[in-house]
Every structure is written in structure tokens, then in C-alpha cells.
Computed example of a mutant assay.
Amino acid sequence: MIEVEDLEKVFVVRRRAGRLRRTKHEVRAVGGISFAVPRGEVVGYIGPNGAGKSTTIKMLTGILTPSSGRLRVAGIDPSRERTRLARRIGVVFGQRTTLWWDLPLLDSYRLMRRMYRIPDDRYRANLERCTEQLGLGELLEVPVRQLSLGQRMRGDIAAALLHDPEVLYLDEPTIGLDVLSKAKVREFLRELNADRGTTVLLTTHDLSDIEQLCRRVMVIDHGRLMYDGGLDGLHAVGESERMLVVDLERELPPIDVAGCRTVRVEGPRQWLAFPAGASAAPLVAEVAERWPLVDLSVREPDIEDVIARMYA
């Protein structure tokens, strides 16, 4: 569904070099990335601010023209056939709404029905589905400017799906949402992908979205693709660690076991770190045999820590 090969985007920036002189400098926002996304896959596309995520999305939608490389979405060159592509994609850009600010939410949807020439029966079915699953029933007659950020985000997601796009680009789709609303949006996206096979490219700083929605993740930094694979592989690349939390009968010196390190001691409780890819069974067996054990638990690595290690 998405094919990217050696994609580059270079911006020319003019900087002051005296009172009247300006010099040209090139800023490489995206530097030769390549990837492919099959139909129906949900992919997380993450990176720090300024990494090139939004620039990539804008090239995939046709808003920006690549400096070089090859790009196809549903077999279409976005920069050459942007209007044709618009009927096959849906886009939600975080802080930028596609809704009409002074109109009620429902009026924005009616305008979009005419813009995309959506058949009446399909429009009604999609609107009903989005309204029910995203909790928009009480908001349809409310002007967009009176909606909270979280309510508007749900409204934008519905707007992006009224015309049944084959590809959905989501930039921070759960920003401003409370815990219950986040869960509702995630469940909606899971059902959308399962029922309709919609291809989803998700950029977010909330890594819980990635863990709950994506089997594959791409990490971009300084315009280059650092990682492309599953979450398990991400832990391996990021050299993440699992944590064995041990409760002893009494306070003792730090536990010394091969293959792990004691990172923290608080009274009779100790925290032992070991590689995420290693089995906990030998470690647990040795601790139980050599120390007066009361209780223990194994904590999985936090994906946020993994990503932070990669950026560092």
C-alpha cells in the first residue's frame, strides 16, 4: 500500500550573514529512507521532535514534493496526483483540524460528504458507526470552536473516515484525551483495521498507543530510519533490561548473581536488572536457593526507556 525508496527532502534556509547579505544553507529533513507497508498493516512511526516524521507524512499525502527518491501510495505518486490520492487516504494532523471552526460538527461532516461525493447510504452508515464508537452523539450540534481538544480530536478522526479511506495517517490521535477516551479511540482503531483492513500509519509521543495498536514500529531520528521491525526486536536493539524485584526475610547486602546487576536496595527489597532477552528462570532458581526469599516479581522493560536509550 505504501512504497518508499531512498526518499529525501532538503529545505533551503537563508541565514543572515551581515546587514545586507544572506547565505543559503541546506537542511536535510529526511535523508534517504526506504520502507514498505503492506495493505492492512498498522505501523508506528516514532521519533523525537525534528526527526522528520511530519515531513515524511506530508510527502506521503502530497503536501510536500520529495527532493529525490521514489514514493507510491496505493500505486499513486502523491505529489503528481494529489487530488486523486485524497479520495483514498484519511489524515489527522494533531493540532490542525480539518473541521470548520464556527460550524457545528455535523455541518462539517455534511460539507465533507459533498466534497468527497460520498453516497448517502455509505455516509449515514459511516457517520452512525463513528458517532457510536467515538462517543460523538452529544457533540454533533456543538460548534467546533466550543469543543475541548479531546472532543475535537475524536471529531477529526471521524471526519477522516467518512469516505472509507484505504490508508489512514494519524499524528498524535490521542492527544488531549483522558484515559477512558484513549481506550475508546484505540479500540475503535483496532476494530477499523480488523473489519475493513485499513492501513494505518501512526505517529505519536504516547508510546502506549504503539504498544496497544502496532505490531511493527519504525524509529526515525535526524531524518534517517534507525529501526524497522517488531516491538520484541526493538527491546533487543535498545539493549533493554527486565527487572527482578526480590523481597527477602531481612535486610542483606546486595545480591550477587552472574548475569544480572543489583540496581537498587531498600531494606529487605532489592531490584536486579538482567537482559530483556534472557530467561528469568535460572536467575529465580539461584536467588531462591541462596537467599532467604519471601516474594519476587519480574517487571518487563518500559518501551519509553528503550526509545530513550536509542535516541541517546
Rank of each mutant, 00 (worst) to 15 (best):
E3K: 08
E5P: 00
E5L: 01
D6T: 01
V12M: 13
R14Y: 14
V27K: 11
G31W: 00
P38R: 15
G40N: 12
G44V: 05
N49D: 14
S54H: 02
P66M: 08
G69D: 03
L71C: 13
G75N: 09
S79M: 07
Q95N: 11
R96L: 04
L99I: 05
R113G: 06
M115W: 13
Y116C: 03
I118W: 07
L127W: 02
E128V: 00
T131V: 15
L139A: 09
L140I: 04
E141T: 13
P143V: 05
V144I: 05
R145C: 04
R145K: 15
R145H: 13
G155A: 10
I157D: 05
A160T: 07
L168A: 09
L168Y: 13
A194P: 03
T198C: 09
T199I: 06
L201S: 05
H205K: 15
C214G: 11
H222K: 15
Y227V: 11
Y227E: 12
D228P: 03
L234D: 02
A236I: 09
V237T: 06
S240T: 15
D247V: 12
E249W: 01
V257R: 07
V265T: 12
P268D: 11
W271M: 02
A278M: 03
A278V: 01
S279E: 01
A285E: 14
E286I: 04
E289I: 03
D295Y: 01
R299I: 03
P301K: 12
I303F: 05
